[in-house]
């Protein structure tokens, strides 16, 4: 059992941080997931997470990231890029009459193109000067457990607290807005406030999730736990609980797969989450429909 060797062997200090970040990421993403799925924001999540790629490119172009992909300066730029992308998509959709999928499509490809050019440019510059190679494109795209350190654990914990506390604080008004925007506005709920809050939480979640799962797979953690939970129950409180359980179970299973089979962490977690979703859908088709 590699997992036990890794976690309780002499190099445990290397392996625990990615596991802890995984558990925190699973918790905060799974808490957001039901709203993301129900509010049909999966594709927005995809746009925002790809903006992180552009953010990494900008950070490298600015000469940041001396301490590798976990450098807080890179994460700060990525957070700003994700927040700008989230709010930009919302503004384009709201005020400019652009459809949501067009707005997301534009932001997604622009961020990818910009990110790729800037990361390649930084790599060439590093080769020319003979300095340490910058961050690899692959680790940004698909994530890596290597290099996840205690600073990431602290950041993940802070983001998890912000996300879960905000969701608890605004749970009633945000759910009302997500269920029926027009009805909520007529009852004095601020749709702009709820939407902005949810988009910023999404951006924050992606900043830390991409360390583990990469920008391509980060949205899997925001979509699959909620989708799995919605296949299991028609009660919102149960959906949130099942989403949390599915998110954590998927991340644990993915990390074990990664340790045992030496698979990359991001894809392993996604495979485990997809398997859980398939299991839930299969069980639902065989069992009578879940009651109220």
């Amino acid at each position: 059992m590699h997992t036990i060797d890794y976690l309780f062997g002499p190099n445990a200090a290397v392996f625990w941080p990615p596991v802890l970040v995984g558990l925190l990421v699973a918790t905060l993403c799974a808490a957001l997931s039901p709203l993301v799925v129900l509010r049909r924001m999966s594709f927005i999540g995809q746009g925002v997470s790809h903006a992180a790629f552009g953010g990494v490119g900008i950070a490298l172009a600015l000469g940041l990231g001396a301490r590798g992909p976990g450098d807080w300066t890179i994460l700060a730029v990525v957070a700003i890029a994700c927040a700008c992308a989230a709010l930009g998509i919302a503004a384009l959709t709201d005020r400019r009459g652009v459809s949501a999928d067009t707005a997301i499509g534009i932001v997604l490809v622009a961020a990818m193109a910009l990110g790729f050019i800037l990361i390649q440019h930084a790599a060439q510059a590093a080769r020319t000067s003979g300095s340490r190679p910058p961050i690899g494109v692959e680790s940004v795209l698909f994530g890596s457990m290597l290099g996840v350190n205690t600073a990431d654990v602290a950041l993940a914990a802070i983001i998890a607290v912000i996300v879960t506390f905000t969701l608890w604080w605004r749970r009633r008004s945000m759910l009302f807005w997500a269920f029926d925007e027009v009805g909520a506005i007529s009852c004095g709920v601020s749709a702009a406030l709820e939407r902005t809050a949810l988009l910023l939480l999404l951006a924050l979640a992606i900043v830390i999730t991409m360390r583990l799962a990469g920008v391509v797979l980060a949205t899997a953690l925001l979509v699959l736990p909620g989708a799995t939970a919605l296949a299991c129950s028609t009660r919102y409180s149960r959906v949130v609980a099942i989403s949390l359980a599915a998110g954590i179970a998927g991340v644990v299973a993915g990390i074990v797969l990664s340790f045992e089979l030496d698979w990359p962490s991001g894809p392993s977690i996604v495979v485990a989450e997809v398997a859980l979703y398939a299991l839930a859908r299969g069980a639902r088709s065989m069992l009578p429909a879940p009651g109220a």
Binding site: L175, F179, V182, S233
Partner: peptide, 9 residues
């Protein structure tokens, strides 16, 4: 306008 897929009673 309302999202009927919501798991609400």
């Amino acid at each position: 306008r309302a999202e009927l897929a919501f798991p609400l009673s």
